[in-house]
Design a protein around this nucleic acid. Structure first.
Lengths: 164, 164
DNA sequence: ATCAAAATGTTATAACATAACGATCCAGTC
DNA sequence: GACTGGATCGTTATGTTATAACATTTTGAT
């Protein structure tokens, strides 16, 4: 029952064969609830991190009722567990995963100017992190790698404005 | 007037020649206020991320008065600006920097069990991140790299308990 | 139909963070 | 010594993010 959206074009995954959210749900026998589906679709459309309270405001329209914080957080928890959504720690916000896998080392580039986020997978960073962890004797659970800055679009817009 | 603490032994900095907080303050003509110094010393002693409200509770003893949230956050902001303290995003907490420099790509390993955090500098991770950013045309501002898991001490303690 | 599990509703509150404005402290200068 | 500008701190209030605890509804299997 997942009328989910397509994946983004995502030049950020040159080599992978990622699954769509639909495929993931089918594969895992997942049946998203109305709230879960609404949140995932909204995040997918939006393409950038959105806070839980922002989601509450936005979904008020499409669902016709006001969701409470616990409801939203529970749905987000579920979606995170399934690897369909990731929490962006530097923004206290949530974003749909471009590649709905679990247990991967995602790297997020988040634009301070337009708020857009790009998710990449970097085997090299992952390997280096694992190497450093091994040196410390540290067993890694969760990896949080978030780079804040200015995206290519905003940079060129900046340059264009400076030129005038 | 900085009666600051020594640096930690820090096997995690093999090649660097890090400065102590005292040296940094002298070098920059810094004069820490009572609040700033108390916070830095406490974080230094503690060796793990502590939240702003945790700091308020802890400093109530050494300072004799109750600090308000704005006061604590202002002092933390100053210390962060000087590179003496770092914010740990996954914990909404703050930790003293092992190497009081600015503008470096620190990597934090944070133990879920004991809460301890280890700061390393990894030129390799930094280079790889820069490489990926260049690929995307992204200009990096802040780097947040936090690895959660289990530290070596807690792992061996785990193993010991399992053995009995 | 009945039951168990999952999801959601409801209320309250905890935890984290900042806005706005006034008071104080302190180094440098006249 | 008095003045002054800048940094720091106090105070009050409020905004933002997140969860605890418990009731109710929905869903799917038998």
């Amino acid at each position: 029952m997942n009328t989910l959206l397509q994946r983004k074009p995502a030049h950020q995954c040159p080599e992978g064969r990622p699954l769509s959210a639909e495929e993931v749900c089918a594969e895992r026998g997942l049946q998203l609830s109305e709230v879960q589906r609404s949140i995932l679709e909204y995040l997918w459309r939006r393409g950038q991190p959105v806070g839980a309270y922002g989601l509450m405001r936005e979904l008020k329209g499409t669902l016709t009722r006001q969701l409470s914080p616990p409801t939203v957080y529970r749905a987000l928890e579920f979606l995170q567990k399934e690897g369909l959504v990731a929490r962006i720690e530097t923004k206290n916000a949530f974003v749909a995963c471009a590649r709905p896998h679990r247990n991967r080392a995602y790297v997020y580039f988040i634009c301070d100017t337009c708020g857009a986020s790009v998710e990449i997978e970097s085997a090299e960073i992952e390997a280096q992190v694992a190497h450093d962890a091994a040196f410390l004797g540290f067993r890694i659970g969760r990896r949080v790698i978030e780079l804040e800055g200015t995206c290519a679009d905003c940079l060129s817009r900046e340059a264009a404005n400076a030129g005038c």
